[in-house]
Simulated scan of single mutants.
Amino acid sequence: MKESPGVVDLLGVLAYAELSAYARMTEDAVTLAPSLGDRAALSELAVTEYAHFRLLRDRLADLGADPDEAMSPFVEALDAWHTLTRPSDWLQALVKTYVGDGIALDFYREAARHLDPSIAELVDEVLVDEGRSQFAVERVRAGIEAEPAAAARLALWARRLVGEALSQGQQVASVRPELARLLVESGPADISRLFATLQEAHGKRMAAMGL
């Protein structure tokens, strides 16, 4: 079966997203985690992200693509996203990990729906939650319980993250139109369903954190 022209693009952007997540979580664990237990827990999640990166890198190589070349078109957009959404404290870092990264990865999960099952299964594997939700939700809820005024601040932060994530998605689509086509194969109906899915998932994440 002939691969979709967007397959290498999808795996490339996901590989760089996972590599970036590993680097960011490692940094946040050292600079923002309030306890050694939190540092260890976030570091463990970072190791999982790196394992996902390796799976994607190896699949790109199996497809005959150069992993570095496959990732390079997305470096600027994803680096800009992380620069614009750099958290200033531990709770902001957790909300970014759960809400900001979540909606961005939802885009890629939706794109994979149109691909060969083996590729879709790989994407599902690297986007599996791996305890990230529980870790972030428990600590954000505890933070809000200790400081109720933090809820409003974090809700504003989450809205900013979503806006920046949507902007990032547009930048990525403009750089690689073949990737964008994976999201709109069926036309306007797919666009409506995509945004409904993204909004529903975002609402559930916000409610889970008590925001």
Rank of each mutant, 00 (worst) to 15 (best):
R39P: 08
A51I: 08
L122D: 12
A29Y: 13
S174P: 02
L11W: 12
E178W: 03
G210I: 13
L182P: 08
L183F: 05
W81Q: 04
S88M: 01
S35R: 13
L10K: 00
A65P: 15
E3M: 15
E49I: 01
I103N: 04
L211H: 04
V172T: 10
R141V: 11
L211Q: 03
T85C: 13
V13P: 04
I119Q: 02
A29W: 11
A173D: 08
L156P: 00
G187I: 12
L194M: 05
F107C: 10
L19H: 14
G143F: 01
A208Y: 01
L19G: 02
A104E: 13
P148G: 10
P34G: 14
E69Q: 13
Q171H: 03
R132G: 13
L42F: 04
V126D: 09
R59G: 15
A142I: 09
L183Y: 08
A104D: 02
E200V: 03
S88L: 05
A152K: 13
T197P: 06
L78C: 01
A21V: 02
R139W: 05
L78K: 01
G143D: 10
S133H: 09
S88V: 06
V162H: 12
R159M: 04
S167A: 07
E18D: 11
D89A: 02
D28I: 00
R57A: 14
R57Y: 14
E69L: 06
M209I: 06
L19W: 06
R86W: 07
Q171L: 07
R86L: 06
E69V: 14
Q134H: 10
E130N: 15
Q168V: 04
A112C: 13
Y22D: 05
A142H: 11
L161V: 14
L14D: 10
A165Q: 14
L182V: 07
S133M: 06
A196P: 09
T85S: 10
L55R: 09
Q170T: 03
A104N: 06
T31I: 09
T26D: 07
L60H: 15
T83S: 10
A180S: 01
A23G: 08
S174I: 03
L94C: 07
P148T: 11
A29D: 12
L183Q: 06
A142Y: 05
E138G: 10
H52F: 06
T31G: 00
E44L: 13
T48L: 10
D190K: 01
I103M: 11
E145P: 00
L84Q: 12
R24K: 08
L115S: 11
R181Q: 15
Q170L: 06
A23F: 08
A51D: 12
R193H: 09
A120Y: 03
L91S: 03
E130C: 07
L115N: 14
A207S: 09
E121M: 12
A142V: 10
L45Y: 13
